[in-house]
Design a protein around this nucleic acid. Structure first.
Length: 875
DNA sequence: ACCGCCGGGTGCC
DNA sequence: ACCGCCGGGTGCC
């Protein structure tokens, strides 16, 4: 995972579970009443503690449940009385682990840990003391209850992970998966395209996932791993109604499940706990971006074998509608799902054989089907259709329905009769408001493409897969969403996720990290473009020929450029002499920006007033800052916020003239206790001093620029020459013209129109809908379809697929070579070679861009290092 | 539960 | 016999 993506995962606060993060105390208690309940617990397993305020026997009752949610017993009443107060008043959260089992069939010990906000500690301690539970300074409980306390609390001393170690662990979290899978499975007959070895492997793995009734190693080895805290199965099975039934006054509080109401469990409930993630392509950590950026190649395999029969269980309802083996395989070669490639993209799929939820299935009347539902972003819909079309044998009648558009067929029986139903996230959520037929069908399988976008996982599924290139965008918490969707027991319950993964990981606990790694390794398949199978690369990419075309400035352009350069150079020299380069970094960047813009077109340069230090009054300073900020924005450049390393959103500028996203810098300020400092130059900053651009000003700037008479530039002419030549050679060739400066794209529109080129423009300002339209137009092979796309480097988002282009013109070098690389990859259809032309102005800043880029990265990393290591905050 | 606790039966040795 | 002791009934909250 990339540096930036994991940023919050180890920077603490933002991902902190909640306020319940300080361990107050641990004590040993007793679980009683075991003989009345069926929930089993093995030694060292975790249990959850649930208040039962409605319990007719004791309003203080605290119920104990195992990982499966089955009731184990109750906390002994004296202790329950103390816990009830603590829990009801939110003084602390309680977690239980059963340390060992006695040979006593009626009670068991439970080790309780209390977690709460520090300010609640006194109230907590006092209350516990009132109930005769006192804690000494060592944090062990003295008095009552704990006659065997010594055995229970084995304090494990761990050295917390450093931020660096955590980061490395995250970076490699998805590495090395599926190293030793050696099974292969051929595609079904209906697939016309032969599978590559790694596809057969993945297919074999996926089938195994869907069919398997045995536990993945994760569960089997739980004793050896530190994930010892789970009961994979009810080892004792349901005890049946041998105990006394609930009395007549029993109320049906659903927090208190009545074991006698539940249908008997399948012999092996562990079969339900099962899930897999397939990761499809890889990224290199941004920190180590180098020239040999890894190739990315998304892969998707779907396979539907005849396991429906094998899997039929009590809740599955009617099974296969016929014996036609509808198998679908989409070889990766052409499946060109373009991901939300932020810095680099990773593609993953997650599968789970969803649990048969007894309590839910009785409430809904749903139509079971053997159909597969595929949900994806709109932009890749056509990809799926294409791929199905392309790889399914023509003679086979595969019912694929596109559930999209106002006329879509909402009949549940119709949908259930399909083999594949394709739809988009937007349709699902729009439908959801009403009564969605999608939710009324019990799909055999659901596939979420770009699944990291899911919010509310409520579908009922037999088995589900998630494909995602960016399973984690902000932090580990993102994974929870996916696990929840998959019903990956027990982690779909927030409590277990928090206890086992989230809190330990955010607190730098090695065990937590190990748990996370184990979990991920067990449920994910990762495929990267550089993955090898039997020592051979998975994919041979078609080449891309990159050539650099040097651009000579005209005499007049050179004159203007040199003026700006010498002025900038003297400014920088002065900063160097003063040793203030760092604190004037924004100025340095601005100077470089101006030079870069001059290399493209003089109109890109925003007029800027003199240095900030010339400002005397606060109002004047503010005005200067606004101008500076506006200049940065108006250029349409890809200025990055160095907190999130993304393009700046909601830009604000500090008094030290550094530009950040408003939320990012606000968070920095909030997280530093005393005085907050600018991550770039360490000047003191406060939120109130942050300056935003007054709304509306940006537009005015743009309008003003447009009034002037259009003029050309050397770079524009060079591009135009290329385009005209191409058109004369082959008028159907499609080109991408890529720039970081949206204003440059605007400049280019004029000559393109003059020369009657048919073109479209794609930049960050387009709505998602319009964007999809533009892409579709450009991808069309109709004779009058556009042959040129003006593309802003940063416009890339989910599913940008521009395979129609065979030529790419990069108008200027980017700070971040990976961004260029990605942009090029987007149009790499696997069919033909792509020609890439980079324009570089001779004897200019552009030639030094790569070096400058490195230096900038250094500074950003330093800024980070000091921010993320608390002990360094004071220098 | 091979416990603790309760409460009835019982009562020199 | 206003006790001790015995032994059966009993058992989460």
């Amino acid at each position: 995972m990339s540096f930036n993506r994991w940023r919050f995962a180890w920077s603490g606060r933002p991902e902190m579970v909640d306020l319940f993060s300080n361990r107050f105390e641990s004590l040993q208690g007793t679980v009683v009443g075991l003989r009345y309940y069926s929930g089993g617990v093995n030694p060292l397993e975790m249990v959850s503690l649930v208040r039962e305020p409605q319990n007719p026997h004791d309003r203080n009752a605290v119920m104990v449940a195992n990982v499966d949610g089955r009731q184990v017993g109750h906390i002994k009443k004296e202790l329950a009385a103390a816990m009830a107060f603590v829990m009801d008043n939110n003084l602390a959260k309680v977690e239980g682990v059963v340390p060992y089992r006695t040979n006593n069939a009626f009670t068991m010990p439970v080790s309780l840990s209390f977690w709460g906000a520090e300010e609640n500690r006194p109230a907590f301690t006092q209350r516990m003391a009132q109930h005769g539970l006192k804690f000494d300074s060592k944090g062990t409980m003295s008095k009552s209850e704990g006659s065997q306390g010594g055995r229970a609390t084995k304090k494990v001393v761990t050295v917390p992970l450093s931020a660096e170690e955590l980061k490395n662990a995250f970076d490699t979290l998805f590495d090395g998966l599926m190293e030793s899978q050696d099974g292969e499975k051929e595609a079904a007959e209906l697939v016309s395209t032969p599978l590559l070895p790694h596809q057969k492997q993945a297919l074999s793995w996926m089938c195994a996932c869907e069919n398997s009734s045995t536990l993945p190693p994760f569960w089997e080895q739980r004793g050896a791993l530190s994930l010892t805290c789970f009961s994979a199965k009810d080892s004792e099975g349901p005890r049946g109604p041998t105990g006394r039934p609930y009395g007549p006054g029993q109320n049906s509080d659903h927090h208190c499940p009545d074991p006698y109401q539940l249908p008997p469990r399948e012999a092996s409930s562990c079969a339900e706990m099962f899930g897999q993630v397939v990761e499809m392509s890889v990224e290199t950590p941004q920190v180590t971006v180098s020239t040999d950026v890894q190739k990315k190649k998304p892969i998707v395999l779907l396979e539907d074998s005849d396991f429906a029969v094998a899997l039929s269980g009590p809740t599955s309802g009617p099974k296969p509608k016929n014996k036609r083996s509808a198998k679908k395989t989409v070889p990766q070669d052409d499946l060109d799902i373009k991901l939300k490639k932020k810095k680099r993209a990773t593609k993953q799929a997650i599968l789970s054989k969803a649990a048969a939820e007894p309590c839910i299935s009785e409430t809904t009347e749903e139509l079971s089907t053997r159909a597969t539902l595929i949900i994806c972003p709109l932009s890749v819909l056509s990809n799926w259709l294409d791929q199905l079309e392309q790889h399914v044998r023509a003679a086979v009648q595969l019912d694929v329905y596109l559930y999209y558009g106002p006329e879509r067929n909402r009949s549940t029986s119709f949908l259930a009769s399909q083999d594949v139903v394709l739809t988009t996230y937007n349709v699902v959520s729009a439908d959801h408001a009403n009564k969605s037929p999608l939710h009324a069908v019990r799909w055999l399988r659901v596939v979420l493409d770009e699944g990291h976008v899911i919010r509310n996982p409520n579908t009922q599924l037999e088995r589900s897969w998630i494909l995602s290139g960016t399973p984690i965008q902000k932090g580990v918490k993102d994974l929870w969403m996916l696990l929840a969707f998959l019903r990956l027991k027990p982690f779909h319950i927030k409590e277990w996720w928090n206890r086992v993964i989230q809190r330990p990981v955010t607190q730098g606990d090695r065990t937590g990290l190990l748990n996370l790694q184990t979990l991920v390794r067990c449920v994910t398949l990762r495929r990267t473009k550089t993955s090898t199978v039997n020592g051979r690369p998975l994919v041979a990419l078609p080449g891309k020929a990159v050539c650099v075309e040097r651009v000579e400035l005209t005499w007049q352009e050179r004159h203007e450029y040199e003026l700006a350069r010498s002025e900038g150079q003297s400014t920088v020299s002065r900063y160097v002499a003063e040793g203030t380069v760092l604190s004037n970094y924004a100025d340095v960047l601005a100077i470089l920006m101006t030079l870069r813009q001059l290399c493209c077109h003089p109109d890109l340069v925003a007029k800027m007033s003199a240095s900030l230090s010339a400002a005397t009054t606060p109002a004047e300073l503010r005005q200067r800052l606004v101008e500076k900020l506006r200049a940065v924005l108006a250029s349409g450049s890809d200025e990055e916020c160095c907190v999130c390393l993304e393009s700046v959103r909601l830009p604000v500028i500090t008094h030290c003239a550094h530009v950040y996203c408003q939320p990012c810098i606000a968070q920095v300020v909030a997280s530093e206790r005393e005085t907050a400092r600018c991550p770039l130059c360490r000047s003191d900053i406060t939120v109130s001093q942050l300056v935003e651009v007054p709304p509306g000003e940006l537009e005015r700037q743009e309008d003003g620029a447009r009034c002037e008479r259009w003029k050309t530039s050397s770079k524009v002419e060079t591009l135009l020459g290329n385009l005209l030549r191409l058109r004369s050679e082959d008028p159907s060739i499609k080109c991408l013209v890529v720039s970081q400066f949206t204003r440059f794209l605007s400049v280019l529109e004029t000559p393109l129109r003059e020369q009657s080129f048919s073109f479209v423009r794609l930049d960050g300002t387009l709505s998602q809908k319009r964007r999809a339209q533009v892409i579709q137009e450009f991808q069309s092979s109709a004779p009058d379809s556009p042959v040129i796309m003006l593309l802003s480097l940063k416009a890339g988002g989910v599913g940008l697929n521009l395979t129609a282009a065979s030529r790419v013109f990069l108008m200027e070098p980017a700070w971040n070579p990976a961004a260029e690389e990605q942009c090029i990859d987007r149009c790499l259809g696997q069919r033909r070679e792509v020609h890439v032309t980079k324009f570089i102005v001779k004897d200019s800043v552009e030639e030094n861009m790569v070096k400058i880029q490195r230096r900038k990265q250094d500074i950003v990393e330093k800024a980070f290092g000091s921010k993320n290591r608390p002990q360094d905050v004071s220098h």
